[in-house]
Nucleic acid binder design. Sequence first.
DNA 1: CAGTTTAAGTCAGTCTTGTTGACATTCCAA
DNA 2: TTGGAATGTCAACAAGACTGACTTAAACTG
Lengths: 166, 166
Amino acid sequence: MMSDAPGGESLLFLTDEQLRQGIEAMFFAYRGFTADPDRILAGMAYGRAHHRAIHFINRAPGTTVNNLLVLLGVTKQSLNRVLRTLVEDGLVESKVGKADKRERHLYLTEGGEALERKLSDAQRARMRSAYRAAGPQAVAGFRQVLEAMMDGDLRRKYQALRDSGT
Amino acid sequence: MMSDAPGGESLLFLTDEQLRQGIEAMFFAYRGFTADPDRILAGMAYGRAHHRAIHFINRAPGTTVNNLLVLLGVTKQSLNRVLRTLVEDGLVESKVGKADKRERHLYLTEGGEALERKLSDAQRARMRSAYRAAGPQAVAGFRQVLEAMMDGDLRRKYQALRDSGT
DNA sequence: CAGTTTAAGTCAGTCTTGTTGACATTCCAA
DNA sequence: TTGGAATGTCAACAAGACTGACTTAAACTG
């Protein structure tokens, strides 16, 4: 059919057609990825933005507003709208920093943790079934490609978060 | 460290921690995935929705509005706004159906194809470098996990599109 | 200590992209 | 032939992102 790369190793996985399929797979998979939490949140007055905030506050309790908005990649005005409703509704607590009183440290309340669990249980269930269907070797490849797809500074943030995990 | 699954095969890749890392990898990678086209479109009066429409019209020339909105997973009203601007700007042509005059068949003009190429070149370049960095086996795993993550009907649409490709 | 920088929050306005609801046109089947 | 279903369009609205300008409080620095 087509010619292999010079050097012997097949580079067929780098054809434009393969890349296009990967792009479309990414598009459709992301829809599935967010579908369950979106469904849960649709009932409440919350959206995907609230989910993201709750997720990362849970991951890094005590994080500051500035940390969070850099991680999320949004402006403070955008994050603030979301955070304000979460604090008003008693899902997130905002504590003035001890060392630096300008900073606000963010924590989930019990209610916030309950919602976090509900959302992440649904998302993990889908992830688990996908992982199980594909098998450990496929999962390792999945993670490798995703990491290579990140921008440099995002990758660093991701890795820092990941390595703090366990 | 931790106990393996009963039956011998390690199921360590299914721990909540592994799943959580996968979820976050998906989040950060999707940001990278869309970053280049977003940057290109930011200058023009277009956004990600225009990119998606252009991408799939290019993939399936002559597709109807209804086909397209099912594929994209948005309402016809939402798609229509995007299509209207693309038609007005001469990037997309909308032809009344011959057999069924209710239908509109969509095609990229030369200008539309030029923009499509510009956007997909950028996105493919990132994809290619990620694929190359991870290697063919990782890419196969990546694709497997993504497919397993899709909802059933999305997976069917994706596969139909993929199999029509080459 | 005075002046500057930093962290956070607010107000106002805009843009993109999703949503519903109402409507016109066309097709098809009872 | 008439009434329903399908396709697409128009209008209005909401969520969530953005920029820009500003305030407050605290920290840092020369």
